[in-house]
């Protein structure tokens, strides 16, 4: 991911061709690889620094509960409509496709509800809710913190002896940890009920027959909740890191926001796969 502003990027390309003429392909290749490696390692180190700083602030009890409450309102309540709308659309699509495929092979909808509810609890509910929260809340965090960085409000906080991590990152982190699993539960339930209504209206499946929990075990619920919790940890940290690294004016804020959502999406997909494998192999 070359997430750099465009003008410096063009300049960089010019200088690198210049070097190619001067010192040959191999050296410039090695230089580029080295720069990419140091950039990557530096980013990871700074990310873990931010994480350890956040953790130590929480463990020392430096939590501003008033700000936590307002962030919880921002993360939870104000994302609710968005989550409900997107997940109900998705579940309607899923039911339409599954039922059409099933009716083509063998028109028996008795297992439709059971299989659908299992997939929703284990896979689509937590993952898609987390993706939507990354879309709404993650970009919001990056945009807010990024614009505070470029307008030097973060430096002002430091000057007035307030730790910017304690003031900006910790409340958002706690709010996301609490709210993302809750929203995942809401999203899963919305998905199941929207699917139930679609199956009833479109394919005459009895809602009571649809509500069939025989395939949902404890493991599925545990895996789903673990996924949601891990995403709740990852989203605020990645977005806050992207926001704190914003440089330059409005362009920098835009880049920070883009980087936040791309990294959050990647992190969510990886978390999803890891918990899926753990769920299959260990539980």
């Amino acid at each position: 991911m070359s997430d750099k502003p465009q003008t410096p990027n063009l300049l960089e390309e010019e200088t690198s061709t210049h070097h190619t003429v001067q010192d040959g392909r191999l050296i410039s290749f090695i230089r580029d690889m080295g720069r990419a490696t140091t950039d990557g390692v530096g980013g990871v180190v700074r990310f873990f620094n931010l994480c350890s700083h956040t953790m130590s602030s929480i463990l020392r009890g430096r939590i501003m509960w008033r700000r936590v409450a307002s962030e919880m309102y921002e993360v939870g309540n104000r994302s609710l409509i968005f989550i409900v709308v997107t997940l109900s659309f998705l579940s309607m699509v899923m039911i339409y496709q599954t039922a059409t495929q099933m009716s083509r092979i063998y028109p028996d909808f008795s297992m439709l509800g059971a299989g659908y509810i299992e997939m929703m609890v284990k896979l689509f509910g937590p993952t898609l809710t987390a993706l939507m929260i990354a879309t709404r809340v993650g970009t919001g965090i990056a945009a807010e913190i990024g614009s505070m960085v470029v307008t030097e409000q973060v430096d002002a906080l430091k000057m007035s002896n307030t730790d910017p991590v304690e003031y900006l990152v910790v409340p958002r982190f706690i709010a996301c940890i609490i709210m993302v699993p809750m929203l995942a539960i809401v999203g899963t339930m919305v998905g199941i009920f929207a699917g139930m209504i679609t199956a009833d209206v479109g394919f005459d499946v009895n809602p009571i027959g649809f509500w069939d929990l025989q395939l949902v075990g404890e493991n599925d619920i545990i895996v789903g909740l673990c996924k949601a919790f891990s995403c709740g940890v990852a989203i605020p940290m990645i977005s806050a890191q992207a926001g704190l690294e914003a440089k330059g004016g409005s362009e920098g804020v835009g880049w920070a926001t883009t980087r936040a959502i791309v990294s959050c999406t990647l992190a969510i997909v990886v978390i999803d796969l890891v918990w899926g494998i753990i769920g299959v192999k260990l539980l």
Partner: peptide, 16 residues
């Protein structure tokens, strides 16, 4: 800068 950040946030939500 604040406006650009907010616009990106709104654009991503509306696209979703």
């Amino acid at each position: 800068a604040r406006g650009v950040g907010r616009a990106v946030n709104n654009a991503v939500v509306a696209s979703a």
